[in-house]
Design a protein around this nucleic acid. Sequence first.
DNA 1: AAGCTAAAGTTCGATGCTAAAGAATACATA
DNA 2: TATGTATTCTTTAGCATCGAACTTTAGCTT
Lengths: 182, 182
Amino acid sequence: MGDTPGVSEPTLEEQIAAYQREFQDLDPQVEKIVNALSRLNRRMNVAYGRQTAELGISNADWEVLKALVLSGAPYQMGPSDLAKRLGLTPAAMTHRIDRMVTEGLVTRERDESNRVRVIVELTPAGREKWLEAMRLATVFETDLLQDLSPAERAALGDVLIRLLRRVEHAQPDAGGRLTDLD
Amino acid sequence: MGDTPGVSEPTLEEQIAAYQREFQDLDPQVEKIVNALSRLNRRMNVAYGRQTAELGISNADWEVLKALVLSGAPYQMGPSDLAKRLGLTPAAMTHRIDRMVTEGLVTRERDESNRVRVIVELTPAGREKWLEAMRLATVFETDLLQDLSPAERAALGDVLIRLLRRVEHAQPDAGGRLTDLD
DNA sequence: AAGCTAAAGTTCGATGCTAAAGAATACATA
DNA sequence: TATGTATTCTTTAGCATCGAACTTTAGCTT
């Protein structure tokens, strides 16, 4: 095998060839789509991760910022709501919030009307970080889709929605870890 | 159980509406595609995880099995090759191999021709597990794409490849964690 | 040979996660 | 009022991971 230095990721074509070699009952077209989806998503997540790192926040921080902003003004959520939204345990949420409070991205205070509850609120600095990350992300996403014509975009969007419906129907909410928030 | 009373994942439409509310400079069509891609991938990963769990192995185990099988007969790799392939540190690989050896999925022995090296080899039981997982996965994947006509599949595959090329060109191999192997 | 350098794995300390137990508060009801 | 129960969050113990130091071996260089 002429492959010298490291065992990096094989190309998609090599990968599919290897699958066909080891597993005959395989539809190459299906595998091509599924593999491309998986790879595309991975690369995109790497790109997002690099962008958030540039802004001095972690991907974990970004997930929380997104959830808070998308919840709408006044940008408040309880730890367990956040945990459900992000697919984490409440325990993990406690620690994330600890960190983000020290980073100045959110505040934590007890709800005086129900002292069991805690209110996590986005700070202006946190909102600003989210905005910066969004600007970077939209630049990346626009660039990614640049070569697709409007018709191709519409078709792609529709096909993806159909697949999404199908997979959602097949598994009525699993509660698995939501690796990366939209 | 069933529908969570708490803060579960919003629908894609709600999500996009929230984005437009909080961030005006947003192309809804771009966001729709990107969000659908992300969601679709997440659901698929949940499905794969459930399948491997059914077989009594972890997702981590499955990644290693895949790498070994796809490397071709005699299904041997060194720990650091595996680590590079999976995007893990050698340290993590050591522990994974420990576990998989006790599970009987792989064997570990020193390479007598170069005693620094270690050879991790798939056992027949490990190969069988991989095969079972593949059978489940192909059923799922075939079902997922069932509603797409041949023409739609071809078009989808081609568009995804084009996006993949574009994102790969934009980031010449990052070495980030490869969350889930194809 | 003797000693340097590089490479391959393992070990060690720290981090972030999970599952499960624990503490504080609210609410219902006897 | 007192007590049981559910809810919300925190704490604890265990596991997988990373980064970095360390050990063993191979291959040079002198």
